[in-house]
Design a protein around this nucleic acid. Structure first.
Length: 661
DNA sequence: TGAATATAAATTTTT
DNA sequence: TTTATATTCA
């Protein structure tokens, strides 16, 4: 007898399911995704492999919550970059055909911390107009204190400023004592332990005294705020009925704590992550946060997304093999319903330049085959690895944008301008003062420090008139002090400050840099960015937390509508996808980098990095390496392909040998 | 004697 | 492009 299918409808139909939705969730999502979207009354941990529609699921969940009638402002979406948050909210809004989703509170942990701390900094003994130090600013401070601490050089070698910053940052982000890290990772500096600890104390004191916070302080202080003051925690956390965190595998311990503190009352947290894509441990990220989540939130539901919608099965077979070799991972074999497609291609080029030429030629062929340039990307381990390629691309007239590496705000002349603005906003910003004082003839580190001492000891908020200073100070520096105090008294738009600073800076720049006309363009660009802001404070915060991504190279004449390929570091390619992807420099010694070869954890991270790179591809994946590379550092010649692709069996890829006509 | 400038060396990934 | 060291200047 023929049996008939009869489905029993869910007998308990919640309020949510009875209402009429604008969006057809059942049609648009697969069952796992649907469950993620509809589970809103308990903590949720989503393990989402590469390309499994993680972003889509988040967008639908935001839309769903908004459709349920919740106030969008009571939803908090924490993402890895603010661009990602904006993008998601925009897509949610267009799904709903209403702008209400754009009111959802979204951003990075750092920008969220910034917002919250601006309101409550007083509780921690900070002023609300604190300045955010970027990495190089923090390094400058450490350097200043470092030379002060050790005036005459002792026989022993003391860690360089970058090493110190690294060390301190790791300690803060992993909640590990400095001693332990020195013992484990920098045993050669054990002897200097005392000075290292002392310098850290001075560093913290300095920042507090001058009202400065570095990236780590933002997180640390937010955590402190939430954990030490119960009523304040209730106020802050109470604003959010739902908290969602993207890229949870790349959060560190402090961020994990913040999530816990925000979610502990309402049990309303959802996090999404993939342990196989954790690539930020150098910054203190720990993918084990994912596995500890159920301990923090005992009632949590774990949902796995394993159907891949991005890549062909041919590419997936390959990437599954790449990650299979990982030491510690969670088994989840990804599968796809897309056609088998072409196998990935591995190309051994003779030299770097041959590699570049291959990439260029292949891009042109793909273009011929109808793939738009916007759907092609070239990825690499370190930003300098693309230099040769960039030359060839330019020669072939292929337009490109580069992500990662040098940013507009890293350029020396832009940092100068920013320092002026920072000092106007926060007169206690010693780092900014230091930088702009040194621009003036006759002022070196010593005199700058003297001037700073005068400024800070005599004044709380206002800058004294120049006459009060000792005669030693060069007239140019007095002029500067006069200029800043005048600007500080004005209340104007950011762009007006920028314009007057530019007028002041012009002669200084012309004497400092020979190529000032080139730099002039950057300054104009900078002024036009300033136009978008209403307050100097928000402008400066954004510059530190979410700097404009365009590198100096591609500013200017670029037409936005023009088709262009993307070239990017793998780190900056996180979360993105293209039809065709080239991974260049897959050469053992460069990728994994030499630095990593003697550390198991580092090797594992590099492996995940390779995995992330390869899983960006939808249809075509090319992996190339130059066979003849002389490494100046070690004096060795690298010839082998990356060990991460070498472990993949031959029949999972094609090998192309380059022949010249 | 101390501070400014000229010279030489070196370079992962990012909020 | 930036940073440690050597040299010159007041």
């Amino acid at each position: 007898m023929e049996s008939k299918k009869y489905t029993i409808k869910k007998s308990v139909v919640g309020e949510a399911e009875r209402r009429v939705f604008k969006i057809n969730y059942e049609r648009d999502l697969n069952p796992d995704q649907l469950e993620v979207v509809r589970t809103i009354d308990c903590p949720v941990l989503v393990i989402a492999g590469a390309g499994t529609g993680k972003t889509k699921t988040l967008i639908y969940r935001v839309a769903y919550l908004v459709e349920l009638g919740g106030n969008p402002r009571s939803i908090l979406l924490l993402t890895f970059t603010r661009k990602a948050a904006d993008e998601m909210l925009k897509r949610a809004a267009s799904l709903l055909k209403s702008a209400s989703a754009e009111q959802v509170a979204g951003g990075t942990f750092h920008s969220f911390a910034n917002m919250t701390l601006r309101q409550h900094a007083k509780v921690l003994g900070y002023g609300e107009q604190f300045t955010i130090l970027d990495d190089s600013d923090a390094a400058d401070v450490v350097n200043l204190l470092r030379t002060r601490l050790r005036p005459e050089k002792k026989s022993q070698r003391f860690p360089k400023k970058e090493t110190l910053i690294d060390l301190y940052s790791k300690s803060e982000n992993t909640l590990t004592p400095i001693e332990e890290i020195v013992f484990k990772e920098y045993p050669r500096f054990i002897e200097q332990m005392e000075d290292i600890l002392k310098l850290k104390r001075q560093f913290d004191e300095y920042k507090r005294k001058y009202n400065l916070m570095d990236y780590d302080d933002l997180l640390k202080n937010l955590k402190e705020l939430l954990s030490q003051n119960e009523s304040l925690r209730k106020t802050v956390a109470g604003k959010f009925n739902y908290v969602m965190v993207d890229e949870f595998q790349d959060t560190n311990k402090v961020q994990g704590e913040i999530v816990r503190l925000l979610g502990m009352d309402k049990e309303n947290v959802m996090v999404v992550g993939d342990d196989a894509q954790s690539i930020y441990s150098f910054r203190g990220a720990n993918f084990r946060n994912i596995f500890e989540f159920p301990n923090y939130f005992p009632g949590c539901k774990v949902i796995k997304l394993t159907e891949n919608y991005r890549s062909t099965q041919g590419i997936l077979n390959f990437t599954n093999k790449v990650i299979e070799a990982a030491k510690e991972k969670f088994d989840k074999e990804l599968y796809s319903r897309k056609k088998a497609g072409d196998k990935p291609v591995i190309v051994a080029a003779e030299t770097e330049n041959v590699q570049s030429k291959f990439v260029v030629q292949r891009i042109l062929e793909l273009r011929e085959a109808g793939i738009t340039l916007n759907d092609i990307a070239v990825l690499f381990r370190s930003s300098y690895l693309s230099f040769d390629l960039e030359i060839e691309l330019t020669r072939a007239n292929i337009p490109y944008v580069k992500f990662g590496g040098m940013k507009l705000v890293d350029a020396a002349h832009i940092k100068d301008i920013i320092s002026f603005l920072r000092v106007i906003e926060n007169p206690r910003d010693a780092v900014g003062w230091h930088r702009i004082l040194l621009l003036h003839p006759g002022v070196g580190p010593r005199i700058a420090e003297k001037i700073l001492d005068n400024l800070t000891s005599q004044r709380a908020e206002n800058i004294p008139a120049p006459e009060e200073h000792e005669a030693k100070i060069p007239s140019s520096a007095e002029e500067l002090i006069g200029f800043i105090s005048e600007e500080g008294r004005r209340k104007s738009q950011p762009v007006e400050y920028v314009e007057s600073v530019l007028r002041y800076y012009q002669p200084l720049m012309q004497s400092k840099y020979d190529d000032y006309s080139k730099r002039q363009k950057d300054l104009e660009m900078f002024a036009s960015i300033a136009e978008r802001y209403k307050s100097l404070q928000s402008f400066l915060s954004d510059l530190a937390l979410e700097p404009p991504t365009e590198s100096v190279v591609d500013l200017g004449e670029k037409d936005k509508k023009e088709e262009q390929i993307t070239i990017s570091t793998i780190h900056s390619a996180k979360g993105l996808e293209w039809n065709s992807v080239f991974v260049i420099w897959a050469l053992d010694g460069k990728f994994p980098s030499m630095y990593a070869t003697d550390d198991d954890d580092a090797i594992e991270e590099e492996r995940r990095l390779m995995y992330v790179a390869c899983t960006r591809a939808k249809d075509n994946l090319y992996i190339t390496y130059p066979m003849n590379t002389y490494d100046r550092e070690s004096g060795r010649i690298f010839t082998k392909p990356s060990r991460f692709i070498d472990v993949v069996p031959q029949d999972f890829y094609e090998k192309w040998n380059l022949v010249f006509e």
